[in-house]
Design a protein around this nucleic acid. Structure first.
Length: 264
DNA sequence: CTCAGTGTTCAGTG
DNA sequence: TCACTGAACACTGA
C-alpha cells in the first residue's frame, strides 16, 4: 500500500474516527515480528482507556498523540493498511490490531508482515522517525539547501530519492514518476545534476506528491499522462501515453521503469 | 513451482 | 565515519 500519499490517507482516516475520542477497547493478534520492541499484550494495555488528541505523520510513518505516553507508532511496510468498520464480524483478514472508539472499529492489517507496530515515548525524536530526512509535505528545503544536500551524494539519483534519511515518504513508484516528469535518467549521479535539473527535481517532487495527496492516493484518478499507468509488469512492449518505449532495469536495488527518449 | 514486489534494516566493503 | 550495495526478512498473488 504505502508511500507518502497512502500513509497520509490512512492518517486522515484515523484522524476522522479517533481524534477527540477515547479508545474503550483494544484487541490484538500476537505477532512478534510486526509488534517491535513491545508485546501485543503490553501494547493493548498502554492504549486501553486513552484519549486520542491527534494523529501525526512523517514520511511513511504515522503515530497517535494520546493523553498519556507512550504513544503507538505505525509503519505499513508493503502491504499494511488501516480499515474502519462497525461490527467485529467485519474484522479483516491478516488483522494485527483492532481499536474500538465511539462505536467504530479501526484495524491495522498486514498480509506480508513487513509492517511494524511500536510503542514509543517520543516517536518524533526517537528512531526510526527521528532519523528521517525532510518530508516533502511538511518541510521541503528551499532550493539552495536542497541542492546542497544532493551535492555530497554520489549514488544514482534514484537510490538517493529512495533513501528515507534524504527524503521521507518517497518510494519506488514516486521516485520513477518524479524522474520521468523531471526528465532525469535514474542512474545519473546525484552530485552531477545540473542546477536546472536540481530545480526541476525539487519542483516535481512537490507537484507529484501534492497531486497524489489531493486525489487521496486514488491511483485510478492520477493524470493519464503519468508514467504510473503504463509502467507495471516489466512488460517489454510498455509505452508511455505518447508511445515512447518504457524500459525496466534494476537501479538502487529496485525495479526501475524509465523512458530513455525523455530522460537524459 | 517460481519469482517479483508501492519497504526497511543491517552486514560488509571501499 | 561516511556512503553505498546487496541480501535478508515474510508471504501473497500472478
Amino acid at each position: 500500500m504505502p508511500e507518502l500519499p497512502e500513509v497520509e490517507r490512512a492518517r486522515k482516516l484515523a484522524e476522522t474516527h479517533l481524534t477527540g475520542r477515547r479508545i474503550c477497547a483494544v484487541t490484538t493478534k500476537a505477532d512478534p515480528i510486526v509488534y517491535t520492541g513491545v508485546t501485543a499484550r503490553r501494547f493493548a494495555r498502554a492504549l486501553t482507556g486513552r484519549c486520542v488528541q491527534a494523529v501525526r505523520r512523517r514520511g511513511k510513518h504515522l503515530w497517535f498523540e494520546l493523553d498519556q505516553r507512550p504513544w503507538p507508532t505505525f509503519h505499513f511496510g508493503m502491504t499494511g493498511s488501516f480499515q474502519v468498520y462497525e461490527d467485529a464480524s467485519q474484522r479483516p483478514r491478516f488483522w494485527k490490531l483492532e481499536l474500538l472508539a465511539d462505536g467504530m472499529r479501526l484495524a491495522f492489517r498486514d498480509a506480508r508482515r513487513l509492517g511494524r507496530i511500536r510503542l514509543l515515548d517520543d516517536p518524533e525524536r526517537e528512531p526510526p522517525i527521528g532519523k528521517l530526512g525532510f518530508d516533502p509535505l511538511l518541510d521541503m528545503p528551499e532550493l539552495p539547501a536542497f541542492a546542497a544536500r544532493l551535492n555530497h551524494r554520489r549514488a544514482p539519483i534514484k537510490a538517493v530519492l529512495l533513501d528515507q534519511s534524504f527524503s521521507a515518504g518517497i518510494g519506488n513508484w514516486i521516485a520513477d514518476e518524479v524522474l520521468y516528469q523531471a526528465r532525469i535518467a535514474p542512474a545519473r549521479h546525484a552530485c552531477h545534476l545540473t542546477p536546472d535539473e536540481v530545480r526541476r527535481l525539487r519542483s516535481t517532487i512537490l507537484r507529484v506528491i501534492r497531486k497524489a495527496v489531493e486525489l487521496d492516493a486514488d491511483n485510478s484518478r492520477f493524470p493519464r499522462t503519468w508514467l504510473f499507468h503504463h509502467r507495471w509488469g516489466r512488460n517489454a512492449h510498455a509505452v508511455t501515453y505518447r508511445g515512447e518505449k518504457i524500459i525496466h532495469e534494476t537501479i538502487g536495488g529496485r525495479t526501475t521503469a524509465w523512458v530513455p527518449a525523455v530522460q537524459t
